[in-house]
Every structure is written in structure tokens, then in C-alpha cells.
Design a protein around this nucleic acid. Sequence first.
DNA 1: GAGCACTGC
Length: 992
Amino acid sequence: MKRWVTDLKEFRSVIISKRLDFVDLVLGANSHTLSINLISVKVGLDSEKQKELRQFLRSYIPNEKQGVIQEHEYDDYEDDVSSDDELTEEEKNREHEKVLEDKYQHIPDSVFKRKFLQNIVGNFRASKGIPRDIPCALERNATLDFNLKTKLTDQMQNSPGYKRMMQVRSQLPVFESKDYILDMIKENQVVVISGETGSGKTTQVAQYILDDFILNNRGSVCHIVCTQPRRISAVSVAQRVADERGERCGESVGYQIRLDKQLPRKQGSILFCTTGILLQWLHSDPGLSHVTHVLIDEIHERNMDTDFVMTVIREVLPQRKDLKVILMSATLNAEQFADYFYKCPIITVPGKLYPVEKYYLEDIISMTGYVKMKQRKPRPRQDASYNQFSDMIVPYVLSLRHKFGEVVIDQLLQPDSEALNLELYQELIEHICENEGPGAILVFLPGWDQISNLCRMLSSSSFFSIIGVPKQASEDRDELEFENDEEAEKREIKILTGNKDRQFLILPLHSKMPTVNQSQVFDPPPPGVRKIIISTNIAETSITINDVVYIIDSGKMKVKSYDAEKNVSVLQDQWVSKANAVQRRGRAGRVQRGKCYHMYTKARERLFDDFPTPEILRTRLEELILTIKLLELGKVATILNRIMDSPNPKTVNLSLKLLETLRALDGDENLTPLGFHLAKLPLEPHIAKMIILGAIFSCVDPILSLAACLSFKEPFFMPLGQDKEVMAKKIIISKGNKSDHLVLAEAFRLWEEVKNKKEARKFCWDNFLSMATFRDLRKLKIEFAEYLHEMGFLKSKNSKDESANTNSKNFSVLKAVICAGLYPNVAIVERVQRFTLSGKLEVVVRTPEDGNVKLHRSSINESQLSFESPYLVYHSKMKSSHIFLHDATMVSSLPLILFSHKVYYDPTGKVIRVNDDIAFHCAKDLATLVQELRQEVQKVLDTLVMEPGTVDWASNDQKTKILRAAAELITSEDTTQQKTENDVKEGAKKRK
DNA sequence: GAGCACTGC
């Protein structure tokens, strides 16, 4: 990249706009050219002037960056600005860059401004396809090479433990391909390794590479990063590999996941991390310069992270010719990934599992002799799913006539034969218990409903009857000394039995149930007791239960997708993919032979997709777009088109539009200063905005509590069949605020008050809260506070610092900040109506975009009798059987007026309008005043975002005065605070 | 009139 500048002033502006994090100053031998980061400048200055220039450069670069200035003579720096065209293009670029810079001319110079400008100019340049050459940062170190080799060869020859491990390792199927794999990696920049569970690829391949480097005296120039989609696998694989090498994590093997790391040495090592961590590194090291090999595992899962990392890495490859990439996938469709990397080679390794016998619905109906009670025949629906049944399933069933009796065929021919029928599950479980050997049974069902129903059915069946509670305790229970056994029993999972010789432990497993962390699930049951685990997809990958021998696979799972036409998220049951079915089957046969019962016909399985729909096609894209912008990858559409499966352009446009509405992007897709902040925070943009406002409005701690809950998970458990009790506790914690968000913030505050005391456990137990979740959430809060501190919005890293919490006890201000973050997610309460039959009350709510929606049962507002203000802001809206708002906070008018995206006065109706659906009666004079206040507040917020700083709530400067005035008005206007004692009681009564 | 898949920074 060359450009010619002769005048010192212009030279200065060129430099200011450049990425000064990596300054590479090249002084041409003829003393006429200077090159800064590949931009050559023909200075035509004498040596004295050049010296001046260099001094200027140094003075401009922030102190901490001085170390990276490299200044060297370049003896053959030719003028290769060849054609006039290129020059013009460059000039055009320069002009455009200047436009970008001028736009923010009014902001005073600061580190933030420079970084921000650097980013948007970089984005612009990337969209022009301007490459950067990135060298590997690892330097050869002969001493280290020698030491590594000595240690390894010594271990190989002398350590009995290592030899024993080697014996085990050499039994893995991948071992036979070791040399071939190493050769292929040497010859190719990208290789796909495909193999099923048990092949050993995840634990072995990285070690083969490292050992090969070490044995060739090149250990110091090898640093392998292996990404895993889940935290648990990153840590457990690292520990396993360290074990195999006779070490602990932190030497040649380490891991890094969010909030936890055990890093290995920088050279001659393997790091296992989550894919998200690798993405974070790309922010500061876009060429992964400290890495020599990237292994991306489980790419067949098609997570957004792995898909996106593959895209970015494919862009990086031409700039990092020495970087090796190894993609690891399940066998089906490995070609798809190889094709994506320009037809790179595929190495296939076999898997190793104990055999798992497969049964399908036809076998199961036959073996159980199950006959469904004849109901009124449902009228066959003439839809796609029915057509599929009659076209594909019926012919298959008819072909089975020679094999199965008429009764079985008749069952299978009913159009709803493959519908989820829990009676059949019960029959099958009883059949297994009566006819098969010992071993745990794992049942995969799509969701809460089916799990709780099956548990209830089994509990009330005569085959299983309750005898008592198990001895093992839950993680939370463990820490609790029980005073009241009856209370304990109510929440525990029951052991069930038919007679004294046969006992059963029935365990529901769902991320929101308290069983997830229980040792009961993982440990072998007491002798004579059979475990029956009834689970969601969580047991497919995240939770591994070793003693499972029997799998019952419904073939269904809940899938969240995004309907771009209706602009709403959808959660619905779907048939699983072939890959899911294989994975579920593989959950048996880990330690011994197993059996898998698929509750669908064999013909149905042939209709399954090979893989789940890639996440990127099922989700909104705001966060991804911000990441693309932060990574300076250029135009969003261009990059998204290069992803293996490009998202729907309509989704892209809706996401871009929302980001513009949030004022995170300008009309040209450039990040705004606010967008730049939001992109750096590991949060959805709405919540990221909320925590920045929390800092500015001095109520950071409760807002961080809320942000952690919304972005990770709520600390409330949902024990089976106790939703009413949970709701009663939530309503007490809400203190009369009609806000699920304040319930979360308050629950957190209450826990933090007692967390180091003895009563913490009792507090959690009494309120259906999880200590384990709280501990994770607290780490998240600490991380958020560190980000805010680093960005300049907090004086201290401590979110509890008094100066950042002046308004933390002011619910009105909290709700206003929540409103500001969640806007434009506003719903309007129309009325509370009574159902004539049951007498139950229902809140009728609508949103401008969707029409009527419902409040979800888990919201405390679903049971409210009246609303002082008709406006509810919400975070999550999802369509299942209806469109549900899962959480909601009632807000009064002023927060909406102050923090919505625009307001205007409508003189005909004498209302101040936020949009077509939200308006407040208001005399003109008052409206003018309110609008002025809004303008002032927005101006303060804009300034604070562009020049990040903390607000001293006690000071008397202009900015603070305006914020304080706003907070005072918000508080006095919030009449909703005054009610409530009665409402609370009535609400609780209604629940009962 | 009738319920809440799962990851991750």
C-alpha cells in the first residue's frame, strides 16, 4: 500500500488515522520514503526534517505502545506505485477515510477516540479487500527445544506411567493414522479429520503434532489451540490430555474458558478453549500470530461460533501462510467442510464404541404388545406432514407385513402412530425393567411438559410405587442441614418400587430443575436400584452419565428458530437430525454394550436431515454483526455471504435496522461510538446498553445482577410441580414492583447479603434459588464491572462501590434504566379479564408488532390484578403455543418519554407521542418542557458515550445536574411505587 | 385458556 504525501500536515493526518497499535516505521535507503504500516510516504524531506517527523510519531503514540515501534532501514525500498488507477483508488480511499474522521471531529482527542476511528477506518479498508501480512510471533528457542525433547524422550523411555498411558493411547482407532495425519498436515494448510465418538481424535491429534515438533527439535515454534463448543469439554479434555502426558494442566497443556483458565506455557504447548474465547482473541490479534495450529472440534454441530470462526480463519489463511488449520467433524458430510476450504483433503478415522442395538417403533410396538386405546379417529390433515406420512411411512409399514402381526401393522398405520405417546414410553420402560439386564435407562424427551408428565405417570403407576427418598443429596441439599424432613422430602426425587427386589430412582433432568447438579444423576445407584433418567437434550452432549445401558429416543427436540417474516423467535418441537440420533444412541455403549429404542419408524429416520439446521440460519444477528464490525471485516453482507450457509438477507436487514435504531450503527453500517462500546461487551446489545446506563445513572450493582441473569440464567429453580410455591416467593421478593427484572435484582441483593453466612443455604432453599447459579452469576457481574471500568464508565472495578450506587435502592430509577435498555420491547396492557368458566383472571396484552400476546406463567405479572401504568417492557418474547412475553417490568410514562428513540407532540390529541401506540396526555407547555429535558438528557448521554467518563452523582457540574433532575422527576412521577401492599396479598391469594 | 430446547464470550 503506497501513497505519496509531501506535506507534513497531511502526513500527520494520515498517521492519526492509522492503526497505531502496530507501528512499523521503515526508513528508505534513499532517505526519501518513510513507510508506516505498509503505507509508504515519499517525504522528500531532508534528514533533519525526517528526524522531526519521527519524533512527532513517537510523541503521538501512547506511552504504553512505545515498545512496539520498530524502526529499521530497508535497503531496497522501491517505489512500486505502478499505475495511476491505483493511485486514484487510494486517493478515493483517503477521501472516504477523511469523511469518517471529520464526522467525529467535534470529539476531543482521546485514547477512546483514536481506537474508535482506527476501527471504523479499518472496517472501511477491509471492505475494499486490503490484505495485511501477519507474521507468526513465536520465536525459535534452542534451549527450550532441547529441554522439551530431552524431557519427552526421557519420559518415553523411562516413565512407567507414561508407558502405561501410551499403551492405552495406542489402542485408540486414530493411532493407526498418526503418521498419515502428520504428513497431511505438513503438506496442506487445511485438513479435515472426520471420525465418530471414541476415535480419539479430540485428545490425540494435537498431541501428535506437538510431539512431532518436539522430537524434531522444533518444540518452541509450536503452539496449538484446540477449540471446543462447550466449557465442560474444554476443561475435561485438557485434564485428560495433561493426564496422558503425565502432567497437570498449566505445563504443556492448559485450558481457557470464560472466567476460568489454566494456561500452558506459550511455546511448545496445547491450549484447549471454547470457540468463543478464540473469537475474543481475534479482537486483539486478528492474525492469531501467537498460534501455529488451530484445531476446531465438533464443527458438524454447526454452532454459530464454529461457523463464524471458520469464515474468519479462511480469510486469515492467505495472510498467515504458516498457519495450519485442522477441522474435526463427525463422518456424515465431511465433504461439505472440505469444499468450503477449497477442497482440502479429508482424513477419516473409525470410531470405537461398544455395540448398541437399535430398535425402531415397529419393533417396540411388537415387543411390548402395546395397543393404543381406540379413540375417535382424528381427521387426517391434508398438510405436508400428513402427505409425508402417507407417501413415505405408509409404504414402508406395508412392506413390514411379512415380519410383524396385523395388530402391529394396524397400530403403525394410524396417522398419529409416531406422535409422542407417553403411555407407550411407560410400557417400554416396564418392558425393559422386566426383561432386560441391569443398567440405567435414559429417556430423551423434548421438554418440560413431557418430562413432568412422564414422571407423574410413572410415579402413579402400580408398577412403580413410592417407598422413600434416596440417601444421596443434591449439591444444594448437601450443604443444607435439614430440620424438616417433610419439607425435604417434598422437593426430592422419589425412589419407586414394585416389590422389595426391584427399586427405581426416577430422575427428571432439565436445565431449570434442581437435579442437574445432583450426584444422584452421575453416581451408580445403590445395589438393586435402577436409575431412570428422563431428560431433555441436555444429556445429549452436556451431561454424561456413564452407567447408561438403555436409551429411549423420542426423536424429537425443541428447536429455537427465528421467523424473519413475522420478526419473532419461535420455539417448537421438531424431528431430530440423523446426527442427533447417532449422538443419542452413543450415550449408551460408552462402557458396555447397550440398546437404543427409537420411538419412530425406520422409514422416518431416512427422512431426517443429516445435521441440525446451522444456528446461523435460526437466529437473530445483532451480536454477530457487531463482532464483524469490531473485527474490521468490512461490509456485513460481504462477510455473511462467505459463511458456509449464509443467513436470510431479510434477517440481516432486520438486524442491521435494529442496530441503527439502537444507534449502534450509522446509516453506512459504521459503528457509532455507542456501537463500539456495545460490540466490546459480551452481552446482547440491549443489555450492554442497559449496563452502561446503569453506570451513568449510578445504580450499577442491581443492573449488573439483572444483566447477568438475563444473559446467563436465572437463579430460580423450577422443581417439578411446585410452580405456585416458586411464584409466591417471587411475589414476596418483588416488594410490590410489577417487575420480573427487579425480582432478579432483589433476589441477588438478598443473597449477597447472606452469602457468607450460615443462613445462605436456608435462604436459597426457602426461595427456590440455586447457590451454584448465584456463584456463577457473581463471577459474571465481576467481569461486567471490569469491562465498564476498562471502558471508563466506572471509577472502580468493584460494582458495589458506593459512588456507583447512589440510586441503587431507588426502584423508579432502576425501572427507568431497565426501560432504556429494553426499549423498543414494549407491550401494552389492555385489560384484566375473567374467564367465565374457571373464573381465573387473565391479563390481556398486546405489542404493536404482534397484536395480542400473552404473559408467560413464569412472570409475576401474569397474576397481577391491576396495572397502574399500561406499559410493560420485556426482554424475551417467544412463540410456542402462543407468543409469550417471558419477563416484564411495568414502567410509567416518563422513562418511555426520556429513553425511547424519538418523541413528538401531537397537538390535535394534545398528547406527547412515543410512537403510534404509546402516547401520554400532556398540555403543550408541559410537553415542551419534557421534550427539552429529554433533549438535554440525551445530549449528556451522547457526550458520556463519546467521551467515556464517570459521573460523580454528588457534584454540581452541568451534566450531573441534568441527570439528577431526570432521576428526581422519574422518581416523583412513578406513582406505581405507592400501591402495593394490598396487591401483593391479593396476588398471592389468587395464586393459591 | 392452558408451560419454560441448549450452548457461549
